[in-house]
Design a protein around this nucleic acid. Sequence first.
DNA 1: CCAGGTACTTAGGAGGCTACTT
DNA 2: AAGTAGCCTCCTAAGTACCTGG
Length: 845
Amino acid sequence: MEEDQSRQSRGRKEKIQIKVAEGDGAGNSGMQATTFVETTGKQEERELLRLEMPSWTSPLSSVKLTPHSHKHKDKHKDREHRHKEHKKDKEKDREKSKHSNSEHKDSEKKHKEKEKTKHKDGSSEKHKDKHKDRDKEKRKEEKVRASGDAKVKKEKENGFSSPPRIKDEPEDDGYFAPPKEDIKPLKRPRDEDDADFKPKKIKTEDIKKEKKRKLEEEEDGKLKKPKSKDKDKKVPEPDSKKKKPKKEEEQKWKWADLLKHRSHVYTTKKTSPEDLRLEFVAGVRWEEERYPEGIKWKFLEHKGPVFAPPYEPLPESVKFYYDGKVMKLSPKAEEVAMFFAKMLDHEYTTKEIFRKNFFKDWRKEMTNEEKNIITNLSKCDFTQMSQYFKAQSEARKQMSKEEKLKIKEENEKILKEYGFCIMDNHRERIANFKIEPPGLFRGRGNHPKMGMLKRRIMPEDIIINCSKDAKVPSPPPGHKWKEVRHDNKVTWLVSWTENIQGSIKYIMLNPSSRIKGEKDWQKYETARRLKKCVDKIRNQYREDWKSKEMKVRQRAVALYFIDKLSLRAGNEKEEGETADTVGCCSLRVEHINLHPELDGQEYVVEFDFLGKDSIRYYNKVPVEKRVFKNLQLFMENKQPEDDLFDRLNTAILNKHLQDLMEGLTAKVFRTYNASITLQQQLKELTAPDENIPAKILSYNRANRAVAILCNHQRAPPKTFEKSMMNLQSKIDAKKEQLADARRDLKSAKADAKVMKDTKTKKVVESKKKAVQRLEEQLMKLEVQATDREENKQIALGTSKLNYLDPRISVAWCKKWGVPIEKIYNKTQREKFAWAIDMADEDYEF
DNA sequence: CCAGGTACTTAGGAGGCTACTT
DNA sequence: AAGTAGCCTCCTAAGTACCTGG
């Protein structure tokens, strides 16, 4: 790894000098050249090979395993290290490149000077504006600082390791593009089926509204406050919930109808009079709810948020010591001290920035007297507080069943009361009705604000949003809301401004709600529309690589990355406010490395950067020659910390995309590529005659291909190795059993041959069955083992929840007779109710 | 065009819960 | 009955996108 990195850095410096031979015209099939054409079992392995990424080894080897209670801490630490290691390497790089400076301040200055001179002469016009430059300098400073305290700890990048079973596979380029359908066109005769769908508010909301609105109002009058008992009386409610008291909540919405009507597709397929009526009502209502421009609802009523429980002061017996002496803290100071004490086990309470931020904010909560005494965090002894906290959580675990049940019931009561709202005649679940409790902020990755005090939110901070004709929730006694507004152009019920970043937080509805589900559906419909014009768009950007305009070229190359690699858009971020992470448009020169030739492939771009949540993206990608040349051009005369696409940002890119297709933005490519990959992989991997567990494995593999594409990672479970071993021994045991059973069967058969009576025959039969059963069990275990092994460091959930058109999965389940519960758990089924309701087995994305 | 602000989606981790094992 | 593994839910941070007003 180390070696690799330094090679990179050397390589980088040389490469920057290379002049681009303009318009060589050799551009060719490109995409095709790098994507999968053959689709055999092998391919799955190649797919996985990408996991190889760099040759990381398991963090297990270096992190001491502590059972149970330390599990999470370690996990966390692991990410820390992933991050740190990454940074560190970069630092090393940079230092090398400027004759290594050990004094931070020094190097900082030099850096600045360098920057200045650079901008005065030469390429100045290439660089954006002062603002940006300023940012860069700041960034540099920060990095230099960071390099200072980067611990010299040998740890693996990302904590990822490659699955052993594919180690012997020939070294791939590590590149994984989603299988593009221009290579292997999907038979898609049904392209037309949702042709009418219009994604944009303007389009969806301007029809028939007047007439319908009148109707709605009538209904509204009756239904205004359909509180529980009231509710069931309303016959025309298309809401079937409550009517059938099944174990799972009956699907609340006639999704299929709703969405059908949303896209102006009317069917006449009606089964029973009941259905007919419902559909009619649904039709009216849904049309009706096609509110004018930007209107999200008509009626909204809720009970307001649930506030965090107040702080309970510590018992007298729990002492805090400063400089060895007992000290009684004021309640406010004590509360904040307790936040710190609770985190004592975490590595980051040892971090400079964390401690600094914490201490500064803590002092703000102290009385003057306390402030005078407590001047040094290192002299604070929180151990008793920490122990008290641990004892408490231990006690909580040890509670009797009754006590636990009581708590559960109380929670349910709160949920019942505050967890739901009424939006347009429906009782909808709220996602996060509890206000975030105070605590110490811990951003992800290397966050400059870690340790800051996240203050307690009071009713006076809260903005309530509801409809004018709704009952306004009452604030807690003795308090009032900051504001009550009636804005039906937004979906949130409650908002407040958080004090760390100054951003606004919202309380919104659960994914199962109409408002979220519909949006979700729209998202996939947009992606499906992209499918129809993606070829055109690809041709377009390939043309643009040749443009005379720098901006256009950059846009085209960035778009190529977004399309091919499903990178995120990469909005600009405010410097020093968040961890230094990037997406496509915000890539910097230091994040890529160009290899004219690498491992037998031409024009390889090596990506290495921290993306969202400071998750590392590392990938080596062969690109088309023209892209490569363009990149060289973009990097000319730039410093590592300069923007790669200095003429581009997400606004420009999205503006362009908007022109190419209505509703198209950068993130649609991620959705599109994810879903199309799933569909394709499912087609390839599903073997018709396999049993259900094997099918599920195939599904998971397809899902995994997507997760890899989207770079959805997780820290390998700390108990992974162990649980794997356990599973293996189970398999071994099963094998033995099976062998025994087979032997029994054999002898039974022999007996039967001799005896020829029914009794022995019966014995043979039962033995046969036993063997069969064991075979199945063994099979199941083996499948489980494979699945788990392959899944070690990949998080499937994120793509499943956010990127994969659920209708693909639903269709697949229907087609192969796999129960939907095997693919989606309860929450997921709720979220995807719309898809379950509307997709049939031949749904095509 | 840009900066600041707002709304909404996407993200990984922590901790709880449950089912299973011993 | 206690221990444990893995799944699930909750939590909230961190993105994207778009709007507005200068």
